[in-house]
Design a binder for these strands. Structure first.
Ligand code: ZN
Ligand code: ZN
Ligand code: ZN
Ligand code: ZN
Lengths: 141, 141
DNA sequence: CTTGACCCTGTAGCCGCTACAGGGTGCATA
DNA sequence: TATGCACCCTGTAGCGGCTACAGGGTCAAG
């Protein structure tokens, strides 16, 4: 017979609750049940969960993973859509990095201007109170 | 009299609902009410909300902002704690950047290996299915 | 026959908002 | 005076991606 949920979880580095969550949202297909109502997983479940977890570790969101699983199920299709999803995600990652680097620079500047002493004279507090002391926009998003 | 919530929101680039949310969680002090039960904000509220929004735009979480507001209220104190909070946040930002750069590299590799064609031969799908095709750990966290 | 590790369902919480629904207020205009 | 409209009020639920219970059932070992 198949894997119990705990075995599947362990084999994929997932928490048991997360496996159940994936089933609940329809990301992982429902497993057969044993006579005692335990879920019983197949190697196909194992593969799919590994795919999901790997994609998650690469930062794909669940909607993207749904699409990717769907595509992976149609091997005859052109992979342009796969490429589009991956490239879109890469772009999002790059945007995030760019925003974080702006924050990093601004925080470095702020912290570098603090010479110790009292809060009343602290450049960090002053800068937080007044964005015009910032160099970059570190905008919103 | 003071500012209405919509005016305060506009003046600080905040949504009205967000202002009420900050009040609800105790981040922004409660405003006086007019006879018609409208909130009426003072310049002190304006300053504090600007501080909060700026800190948020710099990525500080609400717990940190609470501490920073608390410290800003005690100008005689040593600013070491301020420094500690800001440096801790900077460190978190740098960790995030490092993780995202790993993802970026791995995604770039994946995408670069796709030569078009069918999903059944797509390197992106293959890599998602098998982490051993990855170069880095792009770990968890 | 009991212990203890595992499994089940269902629900609520995390963060930082955002988005209603369903009502009240206040001012301008007809 | 009535009507319209922009704004305000409270309360609650939803987002994503889990995580953490509570309160019960199952199963193998000793
Ligand atoms: Zn300082
Ligand atoms: Zn700034
Ligand atoms: Zn491809
Ligand atoms: Zn990998």
């Amino acid at each position: 017979m198949g894997l119990k949920i705990g075995e599947l979880a362990q084999a994929t580095g997932t928490k048991v609750e997360t496996v159940r969550y994936y089933e609940r949202i329809g990301l992982l297909p429902e497993a057969e049940r044993t006579s005692g109502n335990y879920r019983s997983y197949t190697p196909a479940h194992l593969d799919q969960l590994n795919f999901i977890r790997h994609a998650r570790r690469l930062g794909f969101d669940i909607a993207d993973i749904r699409s990717l699983l769907d595509l992976a199920d149609q091997p005859e299709r052109d992979c342009a859509e796969v490429d589009r999803i991956a490239s879109g995600h890469l772009q999002a990652v790059e945007d995030k990095i760019a925003r974080l680097v702006l924050l990093q620079e601004e925080l470095n500047r702020m912290i570098g201007q603090c010479r110790g002493g009292r809060v009343g004279n602290c450049r960090i507090i002053e800068t937080l109170a007044d964005h015009s002391l910032c160099r970059s926009d570190h905008a919103g998003g």
